[in-house]
Every structure is written in C-alpha cells, then in structure tokens.
Nucleic acid binder design. Structure first.
Lengths: 235, 235
DNA sequence: TTTTATAACTTGTATTATAACTTATTTCAA
DNA sequence: TTGAAATAAGTTATAATACAAGTTATAAAA
C-alpha cells in the first residue's frame, strides 16, 4: 500500500470541497494556515497542494488576498496543456486535427454568427490587407480563426481551439517550423463570404481547402529543409 | 508593468528547457538547489514552480531521486486536470466535437491499423457481449474508442481524445448525465468490420452514425429529465 | 567480478521569520 | 451622520535552516 503524500492529501481535500460544491466558484478557500491546522500538516505542504490546483486552473491565488475557486470558462483553463502537447506534436498531425475541427466550427459559425461578429471578421480582413510583416500576420490569423470558433457557440470546441492555437504559437516561437503565408488573405475572404451567406456547406469547403493549402505549403517547406539537411550531412 | 513571480520564472525557465529540447523526455532536471542557484531564488520558489509543472504532467518527481521530464502520453498526465473542465462542459457540445474527431481518427485508423490492433478490437467486442453491468460497459467503450484513436497514428489527435474521455468519465461519476447504452455493440461491430476491410469511408459513415445515435439518446433522456424537473417544480 | 556497505545527493516536510499585498476596522474631520 | 484617511489584522510570497526519507554513485570487501 502506497501512502499518499501530504501535499496530495491537501490537493484531494480541496478538490473534494470544490467538486462537492461546498465551496463554490468565486468563493474563498480557508487560509493556508487554517488548512494546515485542519489537515494537521505544515504550511509548506498546504502550499504545495494548492500550487498544483492553481496550475490546473481550479483555484486562483491572490497575493495578500487569499485563494479563490475559479469560475469555469476562464480563458487560461486549457493553456496548461500546451507544454505537454507541444513537445510531442508533429505539426502535420496538428494540422490534420485542425482540418477536422475548423470544418465543424465554421459550419456552426455560419449558422450562429451575428452582425457584430461579421463586422469583426471583416475588420480583421482589412487589417490583414494592410500588413507587410509576417509576424503580425500570425496574430491576425489566430484572431480570425478563434473568432470563428467562438461564434460556433460550442464552448468545448472553442476551448480545444484555444489549446491548438496556443500550441501553434509556441511552436512558432520555438522555430519548430517555418511559415510562408503567401496569399492566405484571399482564402480567408472566401470563408467570410460563405459565412455571410450562411452557407454552411460552402464555408466548410473553403475551410478544408484553406487547411489543405496550409498543409501543402508546410510539407513543401519541410521537404526542402530535410533535403538541405541531407546535403549538409553529406559534406 | 506587472512583474512575474519568482515561481513563475522557474516555471517558464524549465518549460523553455523542455520545449527547446535542451532536456528531453526521460532526462533529469537539475536539482532544486542548483535551479535556485541558477535563477537566484530560494528553494521554496523553485519547488513552487516545479509543483505546477508536475501538476500539468510535464515533469515527474521522485522523492530522493530527482525530477524527470515526462514522456508524453503517459496515461495519467491528463487526469489531474479534468475537474476544471467538467462543470463548464455541456455534454452535447462535447459529443459534437467527438463526432468530428472520431470521424477523423477512424479514417486514419482504417488506414494504419495492424493485425495486433484488429485482434485487440475484436477482443473488446467479445468482452462487451459477455457483459451485463452498465458500468463495466463504459470501461470497454472508452477502451474501444481510444484504441481506434491510438491506431490513427496521430499522437496529437490521440491526446485530445484522452482529454475528452477523461472528461466523460468524470462527468459520469458526477452523475451529470445518465447513459442508456442499449445496443451499441452492433454499431461497434460494424465499425470494426469496416476497419478490417480498410474501408475508410464506410468506417467514417458508421462512426458518424454511432455518434448520432448517442446524441439522440442523450437528447431524449435529457428532455425527459427536464420535463420531470418541470413537473417537480410545479408541485 | 559480484556483493555489500557507505557516502553523497535529492526530494518531502517542518519551523521560523519577514516582505508585500489585501481587507476590515477604527479614527478623525467636515 | 458621513466620508476619507490611517491603522490593524489577515493572507500569500519568499527566504533560510534543519532534518527525514528515499535514491544513486562510490568504495570496500568477499
């Protein structure tokens, strides 16, 4: 029989308090000192347990103010997954998943989009046209696709998209792949037009095509690189 | 300008080491004392940062032995997280995402499945037929679909599926919804047959149908419940 | 060479102290 | 009585030190 560590006991105790509803989102946990008293452990162990809970986003700590149970659906919920997913992720695999999920979200978006949402999409398109720097394009690209997934009105789907774009962003930073975005703006515009007409099928078609263009570009660049790598190794 | 906490600096530093590949899965981190020296912080702060990383499963601590970077896709590395997702997730939204992702994974699976994989799938089918308890069915159901996603050979997709099934499992435990699985076995068998014939399209069709059956059942049960709820409220 | 004992190292927990920040209370002036 | 400012009390963040408990590397012995 393996004995639980003290910090784990703290973790379990608080998790139970939250899941059982004894402490509701927005409410404050007992102070670290009090928890230590209750569970008969030192403040060090209490802090270790709480640290974990805050890492997974169940609670939020406020220096000097206490520790609070998080309201669900705070934006940073899923971002904790990123590092784990990242160092295992082949970018092509991720794009394959995106093709499936973007198809779904654009369909739902075409059904549920509002006037305000459409204005925002068109605004992003205009900003894209004004750009020259490749880096800034990424920011708009991310904003564009996350906006679509947001208007899918499926929060779980949106959350998964948040993970994905977080991974993409970090992959970019880590230079795991190179992007050449050429003329993606036209593809984006077609998608928006289809959404405007609430044509779910067409929106899906354009989105799949968009993703496949991205995949092709990536595969192309990737092959070039490994080719050059092979040449370098020969020398 | 908000200054980062020291524990966050530790967190970021180690995350960077892992993402950049400087420390690879399975390798050991510098000791807490050494990290504190490097970053010029106390061991308390180092431990706080590492605690978070271990909560999200990026690293694994071994008392007396050191802290190691986790190999990705270790079975337990997502489970810590789920309670947060849970009370925010509408089950229907999740099923909608599953429909999209299961379609993809079954297609890839039909392409990439091995003899051994097929044997395992058929074995699960046989076990399902022998069952009576509803609870045990869930375990097999989960195993079945995760096996398919595993043989998609897309690790990112598989990871997302791991998250999803973890959420489903906890939702079950928390009685957020009721399941009535009736005759899902036949649907499973058709999917396996399509995979055996490496017929990607057919496998996809059966999977979509399977998911839509599940959705229908859920909607049906859900409506009944809210109906009864309405009656209770009236009294 | 293999086994065993030892030493060095590493994480887990406890204690104490102080800094930095937040919240509740009290005090004082208008 | 009200409102603002000052104060006190409470809370998390960090540090330093100590020791327990487990692991790993090294040295000694068979």
């Amino acid at each position: 029989m393996k004995t639980k560590s003290k910090s784990q006991r703290v973790y379990d105790y608080i998790e139970e308090l939250v899941i059982s509803g004894e402490i509701k989102p927005g409410e404050r946990l007992p102070s670290e000192a009090k928890l230590g008293e209750i569970l008969n452990v030192s403040r060090v162990s209490v802090r270790a347990g709480i640290e974990k809970l805050s890492a997974i986003g169940l609670v939020r700590k406020k220096k000097g103010g206490g520790t609070y149970v998080n309201k669900p659906a705070s934006d940073n919920y899923l971002s904790v997954f990123t590092p784990t997913l990242l160092h295992n992720t082949d970018y092509l695999e991720l794009l394959e998943v995106r093709r499936a999920l973007d198809s779904l979200s654009v369909q739902l978006c075409a059904k549920n989009i509002t006037e305000a949402g459409l204005r925002k999409l068109n605004e992003i398109l205009r900003e894209m046209e004004k750009l020259s720097e490749e880096d800034d394009f990424f920011v708009l690209d991310k904003k564009f696709h996350l906006l679509i997934s947001k208007y899918s009105k499926n929060r779980f789907l949106h959350n998964v998209h948040l993970i994905i774009w977080d991974v993409i962003q970090k992959a970019l930073r880590a230079n795991y792949y190179q992007v050449t975005n050429r003329d993606r703006i036209g593809e984006h515009r077609k998608i928006v037009e289809a959404i405007e007409n609430q044509d779910q099928d067409l929106a899906k078609i354009y989105t799949v095509r968009h993703l496949e263009e991205i995949i092709d570009t990536f595969v192309c660049v990737y092959n070039q690189e490994s080719h050059q790598e092979a040449i370098r190794t020969k020398k």
